[in-house]
Amino acid sequence: MWSGVLVYAENYGRGLKSSVFELLGKASELRTRLGGLVYSITLASEEVDVHAEELIYYGSDKVLVYRVPKELLPNQLVHRDALVDSVKALKPKLVLISATPWGRSLGPRVAAHLKTGITADCLDIYVDENGDVVQVRPAFTGNVIAHIKTLRTPVIATVRPKVFPMPEPDHGRKGDVLCMKLNIPGNDVAGVRVLGVAREKLVKLSEAEVIISVGKGLRSREDLRLFEELAKALGGQVACSRPLVDVGWMERDRQVGFSGNVVRPRIYIACGISGAPQHLAGMRDSEYVIAVNTDSSAPIGRYSDLLVVGDFYEVIPKLVERIKELKSKL
């Protein structure tokens, strides 16, 4: 019967996503209630070493590696075929996929293929008193939280990165690695041809530890220098709310919010951001939030640990100055 947890280890040619290890940690925890094994499946090109051992150190009992030609690795339909193949072979109760853009595009194709349910962008997964898997996810631009059960098997969920803690690897852990083959018709798999990387991302905000975010209080594009300086001093990244992307001053890669990036840094400094629901949905889970705003009643205040009432054009330069002073004393 259906048992165990299968973790899809995302790799489309740029290495394993670190969020895969978070999924393995959760899978090991859930397995004690669900029974069965922790499996992982990954795809790799024939030319490079795979990270099968690493997947075992982080909790996999069995790793399925599908070898495919390098040029097909970024083709999602090849991953669909491999994941469907592995689900049919292993019959896991639960399939976990990282809720990256790639995962949120691949997961639903696999679910629809298997005619089963999929829950998007989960913040938690637990097993209830009946032994059922319950998936917890936000909806309505983050305004409500829903608990969802899947009536069919397997249960498929995409999980938001950085929600589950990174487990400690056990380098002595043993497991099985199986090499799998896929029947691939040609380079143009089912009508999709990957022509290559169009553009690199300027920044991966979802991975940033410190974010300095600026809103429409910014008077000119040149003033962004102010924030870049602070970001550099703190080893962080500059981000923004939607208006600055709409006027073309900042790239989409730096937009925090529902229609941008969802972030969870250790420190989030919101400058001149009032706190529209759209923006809050992208940053409300940050570890520590500092808001700098002239309006003490702005909604962002309720989501902040520290609200500094003042003009960021005064506060931020002073802050940069003080940090420089501190550093020069070292």
Partner: peptide, 8 residues
């Protein structure tokens, strides 16, 4: 795709 923009 998450890490980069791919041309398809």
């Amino acid at each position: 795709y998450g890490d980069a923009y791919y041309l398809l």
